[in-house]
Amino acid sequence: MNIGEIFNQNGRLTGSIATRTIDLPRIGLRKVVSENDKAPVYEILALNIARRWVQIGALWEAVSKRGEVFLAGNIDDPSLPEPRPIALFPADHGGYMVAWRRDTMRSDFGGSMGASRTNYDDRGSRDQGGFGDSTVGAGGERSGTDAPFEEEDPF
């Protein structure tokens, strides 16, 4: 889902990002100068209410399965419940289109560029067991209930 756009204006990459809950009307990308291969390519800056530029994220160069180069990173701020993963794709006007990425089930198994995902149960408690506790005992018997196991497939 596209949530913003970055334009190259007089050699500066500036634009905006907006969603239902986030409104960043002035953001900028500042090139990172580093000899470290793991350093980000850009820092993401936002103009705060005091009209100061503050860092809210970083972007690294990534390559799609089809060989297309794009930027990927996160927007983060103490006011957000968790970092928001984003990707920037080159646009015809010399800037970037900003897309938001939602974690998928693949991230539970190490996908989505290392992003982690916290699972919560119906009561809002953190689910520590992934798929929950097993209903099978050590000897293969059904545990956790006195009801006999039904041979018929319930699905």
Rank of each mutant, 00 (worst) to 15 (best):
N2M: 14
I3T: 09
N8S: 13
Q9I: 14
Q9R: 09
G15A: 13
G15P: 03
S16L: 05
R20W: 10
T21Q: 15
D23P: 00
D23K: 15
L24G: 03
P25H: 05
R26H: 11
R26Q: 08
K31L: 15
K31G: 02
V32E: 09
V32I: 12
V32R: 13
E35V: 05
N36R: 12
N36S: 10
N36F: 07
K38T: 05
A39Q: 01
A39D: 12
V41R: 11
V41Q: 10
Y42C: 08
E43R: 15
L45M: 15
A46G: 07
A46V: 09
A50R: 14
R51C: 02
R52Y: 03
W53R: 09
V54Y: 05
Q55L: 08
G57N: 12
G57E: 02
G57K: 02
L59Y: 07
W60A: 12
W60T: 08
W60V: 06
V63H: 06
K65N: 13
F70H: 14
A72C: 04
G73T: 14
G73W: 13
N74C: 09
D76I: 09
D77C: 12
E82S: 15
E82G: 06
R84S: 04
P85K: 15
I86M: 04
A91H: 15
G94M: 10
G94L: 14
G95N: 09
M97H: 13
V98D: 11
V98N: 07
A99F: 14
R102C: 02
D103R: 00
T104N: 01
S107G: 01
S107E: 00
D108T: 04
D108G: 13
F109T: 09
M113I: 05
M113R: 10
M113T: 02
A115E: 01
T118E: 03
Y120D: 07
Y120S: 04
D121G: 12
R123L: 14
G124A: 12
S125H: 15
R126Y: 09
Q128W: 11
Q128K: 04
G129A: 12
G130R: 08
F131K: 13
G132K: 06
D133F: 07
S134V: 06
S134K: 06
S134H: 06
V136Y: 02
G137A: 11
G137P: 02
A138Y: 04
E141H: 07
R142H: 07
S143N: 07
T145F: 01
A147S: 08
A147E: 10
A147T: 09
P148T: 11
P148L: 10
F149D: 07
F149R: 13
F149I: 02
F155K: 11
